[in-house]
Structure formats: structure tokens, C-alpha cells
Design a protein around this nucleic acid. Structure first.
Lengths: 253, 253
DNA sequence: ATTGAACTCGAACAGTGTGCGACGATCGGT
DNA sequence: ACCGATCGTCGCACACTGTTCGAGTTCAAT
């Protein structure tokens, strides 16, 4: 039955065979990748099943054969980008560098894909890549001398810091995506509003002289803040390690 | 013009006057409070403008007079719950206790309102309560001896830790709200799935003996993990303070 | 009594996630 | 060479969403 608008698309001769040599139909991995691209470029609100379908050159509801839900698709997308963070193997470096690489890599990934931040708190991530990260982190810290509860606590501590730090930056990224500005430009554009709010509801002038940031690159300031915090955290962990290494499971009270 | 279904509701004699003694119309604060209640009990997906309207006993679209957007409403809700976290005044306690109260209070707030987590990374929060928190935090840490960049870095460090730590717990809370279980019960119900995923994609058995958590209360474990991390972080900050107090703005390289 | 502002609300529009059933293509077994 | 069975795609429909618009209502001030 030929279409009214364009009868040629339904002709056997004009339509590509699509049988085997073309796109091997739709695959789950292809869908997830397209969803990630859409989320990266358009933000969380830019991903709808229909838009995803048209982007894949397929009908809107064909996706539901490979993926149960939109939620499930988002779960897959989150774990997929988790695969981008690299955790050093044990013995490659000292544990401080290893932990730094993990934390900074995870933060960098979250800044590349700011939409992940809003999804991390929605459901626990049990995907293979998240498991691999956890596994390597535990290995890294166990080799450093952590054991028992402190081992798992120190592990989640590093990712917690990365997530918390990335949240601030992602807020700026996510709120100014449609303006097409870079993160630093957007942050600078936000600065006067922040100043006004601060002077209204807090004595901002008092602290402004104390911690003046005018003229600096916001992105660089955020990076410095993160490495500062990471260094302090590693110092604290090393300190604890010095007084509790190989000891009992219970930390010092 | 009488309604077809119930003509009496539109009669002047059956309708309550509503002029003055009734609900003093709708107020922005009342709307925000109702939205928070809805979000707390039903989760992020449970808040729609229509449900909010009916909950307030008003038409669905009446809310738009007091609030421009749903986004703006969410911004107001986030800042409203920010008002729940208490930051000690300078001089009330030592800076370590003050910082602990701030971080734990913020984490507790995030666990009471798990939907906030998904919103924090969407747009920067410039509300009065957030400003007040930042102001007091800076004051607290300045009195402790921090100055310059380290001052603002240390401040955001504390909230970063609280946010990151709360994210893990909120993931469980948010994903199991409809089941009506408590957080600990939900976490225990999640445990076998986590185990299966871990044994599949990581050598879980190896670390299971190392860090065995069976039988313990998940909620308590999370709390311990947070206080452990917080203590290590404060140790690191104190260490830095000892070698950099009153010095130049640049941290030691 | 009239005006004008403050406020409410129903109808409508575009867009969302998703279930259902019909359709076709591919393939293993006879 | 045929014939189901299975895999995969897709159009339609449903309930629901955020939001706009304009008509309606109340109330304080002139």
C-alpha cells in the first residue's frame, strides 16, 4: 500500500533491502549509545523515546523490544559511562596516586556527562562497570593497608567526594546548556546573580575581600577546590592508616 | 450557570461564602509546603501540578499565579528544605564540632528529603537559605584559621561529602518507596542482587570475607561510613591548618 | 457605583511513556 | 520448495504531563 506523501519509499526498488547488509537491525548497545549522545548534547529533558527513535532511524516504539523501560534505558546509560572511568591496577602506583586517579577520573566523567548526577540518587547502580570500579577500588585500598569496615568506607568516600564536587559544576552546566556557553563563561555570567543573592541574605562583603575570585577561571577554581579536598582527604586517610594499620576492625574511638 | 452533575454546588445558598473566614486564598509558602509533602511521600514522580492543585483544594492551574514554573517551584522547595539544616554560630563550639554538625545536619536533611539529591545538580541554588548556610560555614571555618581560597574550598568540601554520602542512601530510598519498606529493610532486600552482580562482574568472594556486613543494620553502616569519612576529612583539614595557618593564600605544594 | 487589580479556574494544545495488536522478514525443519 | 515459528518493527491509542489563554470572580479603593 503506497504512502500518499511519497509513494516511492514503499517501492521495492527504491527501498534499500535492509535485510542483512545494512544496519544489523537495532541493537541494545546502539540504543544506549544514541541515548547517551542525546543526553550529552540536549540534557536530561532532551531524551524522549520518540526523539531517540527518530535519531536511530526507527519507529518510536521499536526501542521497547530491546529495552523494557525508559528507566531501564537510563540505568544502562549510567553504567555505560561508568565504563569510562579508569581505576589503576594494584601495584601500578602508590595507593595515593591510585586513589587520586580514581577520584579525578570519576569526577571528570561526571563533568562530561552532567545528566548522570541527577540519576545517581534515583536507584542503586548494580551494572557491571560499577561493580568493576568497586572491585578495583577495594583492591587498591586493601593493598594500601585498609581492612574491614574501613576498607569499604574509604572506598565509598572517594566516590562520594567526586560526586559531591561534580554536583556543583553540573548544576551550572545543566542550567545553561541551551545558551551554548562554555562552563567558565556560564559561571561568570552567574556570578553577579550570586553576588546579589549573597549580599541580600548574608554579609557577603565581609567575605568577599577574604576570598576574592574575580578574574579567575571558575573551572580552574573548581578543579583546585577538588584537588585540595582530595589531598586533605588522603592526608586524613594516611594518618588513620599510620595509627591503625593491621589493627582490629574497629576504628579508634 | 448550574453544573449538570450537581446543580446545588453552584447555588448561592449552598456554597460557603469563602469570602474571608475560609482559607485565605492560596499563598506561595503554602504551595511550596504542599509540594514538599507530596515529594516526601510520593517521590519525584509523584508531584504533578494537577495533583498539587487538588491537594491544595484548588484548581490545577491556580498555582501558576503564585509560581512561574514547575522548575521554579522545585527551586523554592529545595531552598525551603535547606532551611532545615542548622549551622552553629561562631564561638558556640570548636570548629571541628561545628563542621561536623553542619555536615551531619545536611546529610540528615538529604535523607529526610531524598528527592533533593536529584535536583541539586540541575541548577545552582541561590536561595536565601542556601546563602545563609554558606555564610555561616565560611564564618565557622574562618574563625578556625582558614583564609583565602582554602576557606571556600574547605566549605564546599563539607557539603560535597554530605551530598556524596547521601546519594548512595537516597538511591535505595527512592527506588523502593512504593514498597513501603524502611530503608534498612529495603537495603537488606537489595543485598542478594548486589551479591549476584558482584560475583558476576568482580571477584566478590575475595572481598566478602574481608568486609563482611551480613546481619548488620545497613542504615547504621552508612552512618558509620559517613562519620568515618568526616573524621578523616577533618583530620586532613586540621593537619593542613597546622602547617599553613595564617600563611599566604597558596597551599603548600 | 465604577474602576482596576488580585486571583481562580476550565478548556485546550503539544508532547510524554508505554501497551497492544497487526505486519513483515528471516530461518529451521520437513 | 514450502510452512509455521520466532524475531523484530511499527502505527495507533490511552492516560497523563506542563503550560497558555481568556473568561470569570472577588475585593479594596476611588
Amino acid at each position: 500500500m503506497p504512502s500518499k506523501s511519497d509513494p516511492f519509499t514503499s517501492s521495492v526498488w527504491t527501498r534499500p533491502p535492509r535485510g542483512r547488509g545494512e544496519q544489523p537491525t537495532l541493537s541494545r548497545e546502539q540504543i544506549v549509545r544514541a541515548a547517551i549522545e542525546l543526553l550529552d548534547s540536549e540534557g536530561p529533558a532532551g531524551l524522549s523515546m520518540r526523539r531517540l527513535g527518530t535519531r536511530l532511524g526507527s519507529g518510536a516504539t521499536s526501542v521497547y523490544w530491546h529495552v523494557a523501560n525508559k528507566d531501564e534505558l537510563l540505568e544502562l546509560a549510567v553504567d555505560e559511562v561508568m565504563g569510562e572511568v579508569y581505576v589503576p591496577e594494584v601495584g601500578d602506583t602508590g595507593w595515593r596516586v591510585g586513589a587520586s586517579v580514581l577520584a579525578m577520573g570519576m569526577r571528570a566523567m561526571l563533568l562530561r556527562h552532567p545528566w548522570v548526577i541527577g540519576l545517581l540518587g534515583m536507584r542503586p547502580n548494580l551494572g557491571p562497570n560499577a561493580m568493576r570500579i568497586g572491585d578495583r577500588t577495594v583492591a587498591l585500598l586493601a593493598a594500601a593497608g585498609f581492612s574491614g569496615m574501613a576498607l569499604s568506607h574509604a572506598g565509598s568516600l572517594l566516590t562520594s567526594l567526586a560526586i559531591g564536587s561534580a554536583t556543583t559544576v553540573a548544576a551550572v552546566t545543566n542550567s545553561t546548556r541551551q545558551s551554548g556557553l562554555s562552563v567558565s563563561e556560564a559561571a561568570r555570567q552567574l556570578e553577579p546573580h550570586l553576588e546579589r543573592a549573597a549580599t541580600e541574605h548574608a554579609n557577603y562583603d565581609k567575605w568577599r575581600r577574604e576570598t576574592d575570585v574575580t578574574g579567575m577561571d571558575p573551572e580552574q577554581i573548581w578543579d583546585e577546590g577538588f584537588t585540595f579536598g582530595l589531598e586533605r582527604l588522603l592526608d586524613g586517610l594516611e594518618l588513620w592508616l599510620g595509627s591503625n594499620a593491621g589493627g582490629p576492625d574497629h576504628p579508634a574511638d
